[in-house]
């Protein structure tokens, strides 16, 4: 059974580069627009640390679709990356059961010099698939992304819509049980959105987990069964969209 458990997760980034002291001052100015006690701290070795997440806890069961909302810099992307296992916890614990698919930035770790086909192949190899299975993934992504001859051209020649379709098709072709997604993919055109919608619907109907970070209330209303409102790296509110969304929108506007 797929599932996510996060207990007391804290993540902080060390600031190594440049003059840490003056950087500290400038970061404090940038981060502390409104009251921000302690996003910057010093650890025992006197390094300057940026506290990106502190003491985040929640659990997700199959069928739950979690939306993350919050201002820029609230820690949404860091939390997504921690769920994807990219940032290992500095404190606390993250447990994710099930095959994870991460859609974190538009490049998806794809190489822009390589062709669409080569990138699909690499993704297949990453999942340890055989050549036959990779062929199937290729056919599926080709049909979904509708790239035509562009499949054999480097990604750098693609329009943003095309790379979006390729990335989305690829991330959903190898059925993840847990899909972790940043908001960027909502930038597609109307026709794409329609197709993506049916694909996400198919994904979620299989009693899997979706975690999505977004600024758009419409996406939360449409997709999510639960919302976590992140603020200054902490969970400010956690509940059903009907409760959290109005409170969030009121606080932000």
């Amino acid at each position: 059974m797929a599932g996510i458990d996060v207990t007391n997760l804290s993540i902080s980034f060390p600031l190594y580069h440049g003059d840490a002291r003056s950087l500290k001052k400038s970061m404090k100015k940038a981060l502390g627009g409104r009251s921000s006690p302690g996003r910057l701290a010093r650890d025992e070795r006197n390094r300057v640390m940026v506290q990106a997440l502190s003491d985040v806890s929640f659990s997700l069961n199959p069928g739950e679709r979690l939306g993350l909302v919050g201002r820029n810099g609230a820690g949404k992307t860091t939390l997504l990356r921690a769920l994807g296992g990219i940032y290992e916890p500095v404190e606390g614990r993250v447990t994710v059961r099930g095959r994870v698919g991460t859609l974190l930035d538009t490049s998806l770790g794809m190489d822009h010099e390589l062709t669409g086909r080569e990138n699909i192949r690499l993704r297949g190899l990453f999942f340890g698939l055989s050549e036959t299975a990779i062929g199937e993934v290729e056919a599926d992504v080709e049909a979904f992304a509708d790239l035509g001859t562009f499949m054999d051209l480097p990604l750098k020649t693609y329009s943003s819509g095309m790379s979006l379709r390729l990335a989305f098709g690829l991330a959903t072709a190898i059925m993840p049980e847990v899909l972790i997604m940043d908001e960027w993919f909502m930038a597609g055109d109307a026709a794409f959105m329609q197709r993506a919608a049916s694909r996400i619907a198919g994904l979620v109907e299989g009693a899997e987990i979706l975690v999505i970070s977004t600024h758009l209330p419409s996406i939360i209303e449409k997709w999510c069964t639960r919302v976590i409102w992140m603020d200054q790296g902490r969970v400010r509110m956690d509940g059903v969209p009907a409760d959290v969304l109005p409170a969030y929108l009121e606080a932000e506007h």
Partner: peptide, 20 residues
């Protein structure tokens, strides 16, 4: 594009599914 021919399951990849 026309809507997807088969909404669920979203993909048609017997080998991939079998291998996974």
């Amino acid at each position: 594009s026309e809507p997807m021919a088969h909404p669920t399951p979203i993909t048609d990849e017997p080998h991939v599914e079998a291998e996974l």
